[in-house]
Nucleic acid binder design. Structure first.
Lengths: 223, 223
DNA sequence: CAGCTGCGTAACCGGTTTGTCACCGCCCTG
DNA sequence: CAGGGCGGTGACAAACCGGTTACGCAGCTG
């Protein structure tokens, strides 16, 4: 699931990106309206989060440009009390909005509600490097090879790693994201799950090329 | 267009009723949760506006009761800063919410956006591939074969699958769309319904050609 | 009232998935 | 060099999942 974030406030952008990244979304960032439109066309995100006040094109203009060619869900960010903005944004085809300041949790809840409404079926499989992950079908394809069926947990694990492709993800975080809670002791589970996943996706499971062990965690290596 | 408003604040209720009345909606009012549920059943409104804090049943409980039997759009009203409430409301199946205080204009804009969205979804193609679904008659025809009578639930299930023909629809989503239930243990129901539907529409129910099991859900296969 | 239909519930079966345990080899350190 | 920590591996049992059969209950209808 690819999300485009457009906001000129670098700090807020980073916060949102971090939150969504944690939740398993792939995040693309833009710091002004022109970049947002460009990235939208280049990356075809599944959801767009737009600040209204931006240098260059305003959020309104970006929203309009997006709506001219796509019905992708758009969430607008506004400052409190600018009611005119809301009416205008919704009129332009935005699907929802958030008033700053907001908490990450609220953002996530609203965003999920939006995606649920939009029908997640339309989400194209997310691809990074040679890996193509199809969330709906629970499958991966590696390069041009056969597609492989994954179980629920394997899918979640791979999704997390893919969302942070190239970077190490700590065991603790994986444990948290895949199983939801659980205290420290359960390294064994992760060990097993990684093992099972490697059996499925690695050409030579004994010498992992994709899912590599890193200090205190694992990382996905893509070209 | 009939709208049910449930709020214990008489003044706010009147304001909303006036606003919506002006805008051409037919308004029904309830001052507590029990009345809301009763009126909902008696009047079958097209949209519901629910305050969370009400004597008798809370907005949550009313929302739950409504979702148990209908997919009508629900908008919740909350007081500012009760973030827990928002998350919970959206989790219960509410479609949108407003934070008090809000202006009539905002309410109207959000409400229209909601109806627009709900309205969009009411245009599923009736015929896809070899399948022809007749919503009014509660029947399907497969290819040139006999038409088959479907029950209400079977029809809804098939309608959902048809709307996403060729793509997997998750069990959770189906559960939600067909019964209105919040996701939970009720996989049994879906299992049964799928079984019964297969008996009716599959040439060989033991080897489904149309309604296939997919990872974490089902999909309709059309040529 | 008897029978039918629609639908929720329970129980069972076989296959898959997941959790657990035991053991291995490697590296690090005392 | 012995021992402990850590990741990888294989084996096995428990839990889960989808399909199926069976039953119960409510509402309708002749």
């Amino acid at each position: 699931m690819k999300v485009l974030i457009a906001d000129d406030d670098a700090e807020l952008r980073a916060l949102i990106a971090f939150t969504l990244g944690q939740a398993g979304y792939l995040v693309i960032k833009a710091s002004d309206g022109h970049a947002a439109v460009r990235l939208f066309e280049a990356e075809a995100p599944d959801l767009v989060v737009l600040d209204i006040n931006m240098p260059g094109l305003s959020g309104f203009q970006v929203c309009e440009a997006i709506r001219a060619r796509s019905r992708v869900p758009v969430m607008m960010l506004t400052v409190r009390g600018e009611e005119e903005d809301l009416v205008r944004a919704l009129g332009l085809g935005a699907d929802d909005y958030l008033t700053k300041p907001f908490s990450p949790r609220t953002l996530l809840a609203r965003l999920r509600a939006l995606l649920r409404r939009a029908g997640m079926e339309s989400s194209p499989p997310l691809a990074v490097g040679r890996l193509t992950l199809d969330l709906a079908e629970h499958t991966v394809r590696i390069g041009a090879a056969e597609t492989v069926r994954l179980t629920k947990l394997e899918l979640r694990l791979l999704q997390m790693l893919l969302a942070n492709a190239g970077h190490t993800v700590s065991s603790e975080r994986l444990l948290m994201q895949v199983w939801g809670h659980r205290s420290g002791g359960d390294r064994q589970l992760l060990k097993q799950l990684v093992h099972r996943l490697r059996q499925k996706i690695e050409a030579d499971p004994a010498a992992p090329a994709l899912l590599q062990t890193a200090a205190a965690g694992y990382k996905l290596v893509v070209d």
